[in-house]
Every structure is written in structure tokens, then in C-alpha cells.
Measured scan of single mutants.
Amino acid sequence: LQLFIKTLTGKTSTVEMEPSDTIENLKAKIQDKEGIPPDQQRLIFAGKQLEDGRTLSDYNIQKESTLHLVL
């Protein structure tokens, strides 16, 4: 599924993920695209901070969801 990652600067990146992927996997993919180390990334979806060990489906993240990346 395609996700949009929006940064505080207003920049939006697109990443392709599976519902079974963990937040950790997602942060690794963001690191590949943006060069931001996972330990500096905080991802927010629906007002919640996402935890590394959980999966996208745990948070009911659907295709074309927008996640907010806070550093």
C-alpha cells in the first residue's frame, strides 16, 4: 500500500509498504529515502505516536494514509 509521509517542512514523500510491515520497517524505508536515522523519527497517525514493534495493520493504516514525521 502507498503511504504519504509528511514532514514539518510540508514536504511529502511516498513509500510503498505492506499492511504486515512494522513501524520499524517503515522508519528504515524513510531512512533510505530521506537519510533520517530511525531513532530520530517519530511518526504520528490519527494523533497517536506509532511504536516500532507494531504493524501498520495494528494501527489500521490504510492505503494512501498520510503519516506525520516529527524529528
Rank of each mutant, 00 (worst) to 15 (best):
L1V: 10
L1K: 04
L1H: 04
L1W: 10
Q2V: 15
L3F: 08
L3W: 02
L3D: 01
F4H: 10
F4P: 02
I5Y: 08
K6Q: 11
K6D: 04
T7V: 09
T7H: 14
T7D: 11
T7G: 10
L8P: 14
L8T: 13
L8S: 14
T9M: 11
G10Q: 03
G10N: 05
G10E: 03
K11H: 12
K11G: 10
K11A: 10
T12G: 06
T12F: 11
T12Q: 07
T12D: 04
S13D: 05
T14Q: 10
T14K: 10
T14Y: 12
T14E: 07
T14R: 11
V15N: 00
E16C: 12
E16T: 13
M17F: 11
M17S: 05
M17A: 13
M17E: 00
M17I: 11
P19Q: 08
P19A: 12
P19N: 06
P19K: 07
P19Y: 09
S20D: 12
D21F: 03
D21W: 06
T22K: 07
I23L: 05
I23H: 00
I23G: 01
E24Q: 12
N25F: 12
N25D: 13
N25T: 13
L26K: 01
K27I: 03
K27S: 00
K27L: 03
K27D: 00
K27M: 05
A28C: 06
K29A: 10
K29I: 09
I30S: 00
I30T: 00
I30W: 02
Q31E: 10
Q31M: 13
Q31N: 09
D32T: 10
D32R: 10
D32E: 14
K33Y: 08
K33L: 15
E34R: 06
E34T: 15
E34P: 01
E34V: 14
G35A: 05
G35V: 02
I36T: 06
I36P: 04
P37R: 08
P37Q: 06
P37M: 06
P38S: 14
D39C: 10
D39E: 14
D39I: 09
Q40P: 02
Q40R: 12
Q40N: 08
Q41H: 03
R42L: 14
R42Q: 12
L43Q: 00
L43F: 07
L43T: 00
L43S: 00
F45E: 01
F45H: 06
F45W: 10
F45D: 01
F45A: 03
A46W: 10
G47L: 03
K48M: 13
K48Y: 10
K48G: 06
Q49N: 11
Q49H: 10
L50H: 00
E51Y: 07
E51M: 10
E51N: 06
E51P: 02
E51I: 08
D52K: 04
D52A: 07
G53W: 14
G53P: 05
R54P: 04
R54W: 10
L56W: 02
L56E: 00
L56Y: 01
L56R: 00
L56N: 01
S57W: 07
S57I: 09
S57R: 12
D58W: 13
D58P: 01
Y59N: 02
Y59H: 03
Y59D: 01
N60L: 07
N60Y: 06
I61P: 02
I61D: 02
Q62A: 10
Q62I: 12
K63C: 06
K63R: 12
K63V: 07
S65A: 11
T66K: 04
T66M: 07
L67Y: 03
L67Q: 01
H68G: 04
L69P: 01
L69R: 00
L69Y: 02
V70M: 11
V70N: 06
V70Y: 14
V70C: 07
V70G: 05
L71E: 07
L71S: 08
